[in-house]
Simulated assay, not measured.
Amino acid sequence: MQPIINRQYQAIGHQPRIDTLVIHYTVADERRSLALLTGEHVSSHYLIARLPKPNAAQPEIYQLVPESQAAWHAGVSAWRGTNNLNKTSIGIELVNKGFTPGSQQAEGY
């Protein structure tokens, strides 16, 4: 089930802010990821849950910070001549343990 985004109305007064997507994995379960990303020190625009909720066809996507605001997901950062990626990027976190010792690959969806 895909969310519906209505783009019928467009504002005239704006300028580009976003030029990068930064995708991380959380190294935590969904509950812990939500606790970390809604606290005082770290945030992201989106958190994508690992598993669908019961009776849901797709994983849940949490929007934690409006895209019009800077989230604190990139820390002290630089990429291709841009410093402080928090100001010019959208942060997306995936609930995923990542690589674990003894496994041949990262935990997938």
Rank of each mutant, 00 (worst) to 15 (best):
E67S: 11
R7Q: 02
R7P: 01
S103D: 11
L21I: 11
R32F: 01
T20D: 00
Y109M: 13
I4R: 09
G13E: 11
A56P: 01
P66L: 07
G39Y: 06
N55Y: 12
M1K: 01
P16D: 01
R50Q: 13
L34K: 00
A70D: 15
T88F: 11
Y9K: 10
H45K: 12
V65P: 10
S89Q: 06
E67G: 06
E67N: 13
A74N: 15
Q15E: 00
I92F: 13
V65S: 11
E107W: 14
G102I: 08
R17S: 00
K97P: 11
V95H: 04
I23L: 03
R50K: 14
Y25G: 02
K87M: 07
N86R: 10
Y62D: 02
R80S: 05
T26K: 00
E40Y: 09
T38V: 04
A28H: 14
Q69M: 14
T20K: 02
E107Y: 15
W79F: 09
H41I: 07
Y109W: 15
L85Q: 00
G91P: 09
Q10A: 12
W79L: 10
I5E: 03
T82Y: 00
I4C: 12
Y25C: 01
R50P: 05
L51F: 10
S77G: 07
W72S: 15
L47R: 09
S44A: 15
P101Q: 05
L64C: 08
E67I: 14
S89H: 09
L21R: 05
G39Q: 04
E40F: 10
H14Y: 06
R80Y: 03
Q69T: 09
H14S: 06
A11Q: 14
A57P: 04
A11S: 14
Q63W: 03
P101W: 04
P16H: 00
Q63V: 03
N96W: 06
V42P: 04
S43G: 09
A78E: 15
T100S: 09
T38N: 04
V76E: 09
G102L: 05
A28I: 08
L94T: 06
A49P: 11
Q104S: 15
Y46L: 13
G91S: 05
L85C: 01
L47W: 12
A70M: 13
T20A: 01
S68Y: 07
A11I: 11
T82S: 01
V27A: 14
Q63K: 09
